[in-house]
Design a protein around this nucleic acid. Structure first.
Lengths: 133, 133
DNA sequence: CTACGCCCTCAAGCCACTTGAGGTTCAAGC
DNA sequence: GCTTGAACCTCAAGTGGCTTGAGGGCGTAG
């Protein structure tokens, strides 16, 4: 199949496939008249990459995951990748929640204190006024 | 004061200050012998930018905020920037929580189903198995 | 043989910086 | 006046994960 068919089959854009090839994440396929020709394993590989991107793994991590597939490493390897990723997701959630609390405090501070004045005096823009994160 | 002093006063790195100037966020200061010389208003302006970056506003947004300061627009303008930003923070939190739930399901699925097998069969890597987001 | 869609490569753009190379200016000490 | 060292300067490239655009080649149907 040609690249456009692969793209639809795996749910990835054509330039993205070429990009993955350029960084060594996908192995370059055979060519016919200069055009890339793919097989069904390529659909599998690319679908896996897409799945991992949906889970927000980095391309670096995905490279490691693909390598562990090729070496037939045990499943526990995959799981530890996933657990580490889960920890970083939770860290990011905690940071965003702290930021959310800060923003809520600033907005309500604006409503009770300075609404009606001009921007330079707004509590939202006062450094070091309210910080929850 | 010179750029290094400003940097410490506002809690921003020296290259970052030059970068802000290059994109037009900071107005270019006077020079002495080719070196940038700043005043106390520059500390204020840069501290404000840093404050907004701490709140994770984009530099584009910060440009708009600075413009609304210069035009002495009402505080309600600032507040609506903040509210919109708060909404996008909450959207991102929701996305990350869905992702967190998916990852938890995948990891526990791995523990109960496939731990001990090799990576290619791991449920974590099966597209379309578990999706919460 | 022409039209059209799909394919190709290469380069640049996005965001918010950081890092590095290679050179200049300033302040202090001798 | 000279040297040293820190701080300054500019310009270019790298980060991540693509997307977009320019300018051209290939394949097939009419």
């Amino acid at each position: 199949m040609r690249i456009g068919v692969l793209a639809k089959a795996a749910g990835v854009s054509v330039p993205t496939i070429r990009y993955y090839e350029s960084i060594g994440l996908l192995t370059p396929p055979a060519r016919q008249g200069g055009q890339r020709i793919y097989g069904s394993e390529d659909v599998k590989a690319l679908s896996l990459i897409r799945h991992c991107r949906d889970l927000d793994f980095s391309l670096d991590d995905i490279g490691d995951i693909l390598a562990s597939l090729q070496r037939r490493l045990p499943c526990s390897d995959t799981k530890s990748f996933a657990e580490q990723h889960l920890r970083s997701i939770r860290t990011k959630i905690a940071e965003l929640r702290a930021l959310e609390a800060t923003m809520v405090a600033l907005v309500s501070g604006c409503e009770t204190t300075c609404c009606g004045s001009t921007a330079p005096d707004c509590v939202i823009l006062q450094p070091g006024q309210v910080t929850c994160g």
